[in-house]
């Protein structure tokens, strides 16, 4: 698993960036979704992967079991997921509204702010 994850992260980020660089604003959204999944997976794997070792201290012990998963990256990922969920939901609303206002999803045609 430790070998597969970097490739999965790389693939997600590459696909996400590719989508973000397209001109369509809908593809921008898809790209952002992929990109945030890539980031989350990366943070998740940052603590190292341990199978089946919950970081809980048994009664009477003072330390968690020897091979325990690091809980902090998982907490970080949960937070990051919630944030990217909220941002993505807002971005969908924004893109939809912009599409209805400008009648185009081509980012290159959105030039009223450049004048």
């Amino acid at each position: 698993m430790n070998l597969i994850l970097p490739f999965v992260v790389g693939a997600l980020v590459a696909a996400g960036l590719y989508m973000m660089m397209r001109r369509s604003s809908i593809k921008l959204l898809i790209g952002f979704a992929l990109l945030s999944h890539g980031a989350n997976l990366l943070v998740f794997s940052a603590g190292g992967l341990v199978r089946g070792g919950a970081p809980l201290i048994e009664q009477g012990e003072s330390l968690p079991p020897a091979a325990h998963a690091d809980p902090l990256p998982q907490a970080l990922v949960l937070t990051a997921m919630v944030i990217s969920f909220g941002v993505l939901a807002f971005a969908i609303a924004l893109v939809l509204r912009t599409y209805r206002e400008t009648k185009t999803d081509d980012v290159d045609k959105m030039t009223t702010t450049e004048r």
């Binding site: 604003s25 912009t98 702010t113």
Partner: peptide, 14 residues
């Protein structure tokens, strides 16, 4: 919610 604001917001967000 007018056109320049939405376009500006989209760029800022991205």
């Amino acid at each position: 919610g007018r056109r320049p604001q939405l376009e500006g917001a989209l760029k800022y967000v991205a």
